[in-house]
Design a protein around this nucleic acid. Structure first.
Length: 281
DNA sequence: GGCGTTGTTGGGGA
DNA sequence: TTCCCCAACAACGC
């Protein structure tokens, strides 16, 4: 989610109110409606806003909404006359545009080009009516960075889902949306609890610490332009550098930054799950 | 070279 | 209904 939010902000700063004149699809499998109709409909539409729901990007294009999900390996890369602003999951040595993973190219009247690259073809682009858009976003839960993510809300949902495993609960996207594998593990580290715990087993203090940990890890990552991209380039040259602050994710067998105990990796809810067996109980 | 792993999530089967 | 697993696909590390 911090990566998607960073992309949202970067794109909006450049293509706000800009008009799309053309889109090309190249081996794009998950596009709706089918390419020919999509191309016809999107022509001459302007970007009124770009929003984020969970990890889903929504481009408000007048009478249509364009929903873009990057999934595991999607990128949105913006080429202006003078600069390349990119976001998403990087692929080494393949930042020339277009490249072998470019699946869609949006051309703007003002000259910018927006590239959708997706190595594994999991991502999708859908052009839908506002009603259909509402249906798509309906299942998403509360965003942890909004005021809706209140202490009262947190107390209520942790009570309701007491029999769920923490890892599983936080990854579900409902009743809380936006947390991915990295941030769940990092939030649990900050709360000093193992992701394998049952939510209902948390003490009031642990519950409060997890609440704060979720907020803190997301805010900190956004402030650092996300974890996953090393190809990030803004006009100021800033890169996504949150990987420098990771305590457990991707650090299997490495020493805990706090206590030097080797980080442990297990499988929970089908996902690689990392924790410090000393710091986290 | 082969095998297991990878940031997501929805849909199918148990 | 609910839970679990896996496909969708390609690259990379061990």
């Amino acid at each position: 989610m911090p990566e998607v939010e960073t992309i949202r902000r970067d794109l909006l700063s450049v293509i706000f109110k800009k008009q799309i004149v053309r889109v090309d699809f190249l081996g794009m499998t998950r596009v709706f409606p089918e390419a020919a109709l999509f191309r016809r409909r999107v022509q001459k539409l302007s970007v009124k806003d770009i929003r984020r729901v969970g990890k889903l990007l929504i481009f408000d294009l007048e009478k249509y909404q364009m929903m873009v999900h990057l999934k595991m390996t999607g990128q949105l890369v913006l080429k202006t006359r003078t600069d390349v602003i990119s976001g998403g999951h990087p692929v080494k040595g393949l930042m020339e545009l277009p490249n072998k993973f470019t699946r869609a190219i949006f051309y703007f009247k003002s000259g910018e080009e927006l590239y959708f690259n997706d190595m594994r073809k999991f991502g999708y682009i859908k052009l839908v009516s506002p009603e259909e858009a509402r249906k798509i976003i309906a299942p998403y839960g509360v965003d942890p960075l909004t005021n809706d993510f209140s202490q009262d809300f947190w107390r209520a949902v942790t009570k309701k889902y007491g029999r769920s495993i923490v890892k599983h609960f936080l990854l579900r996207q409902t009743p809380i949306s936006g947390l991915g594998n990295i941030y769940v593990d990092e939030a649990c580290f900050r709360a000093k609890i193992r992701p394998t715990r049952l939510l209902g087993s948390l003490t009031p203090k642990e519950q409060g610490d997890l609440y704060k940990g979720i907020r803190r890890v997301l805010e900190l990552s956004i402030a650092n332009r996300g974890t996953s991209f090393n190809t990030y380039r803004g006009a100021d040259g800033a890169k996504g550098v949150f990987y420098k602050f990771l305590h457990v994710y991707g650090r299997n067998k490495e020493k805990c930054r706090k206590c030097k105990t080797p980080i442990v990796k297990v499988r929970v809810a089908g996902r690689g799950t990392h924790y410090c067996p000393t710091c986290q109980v």
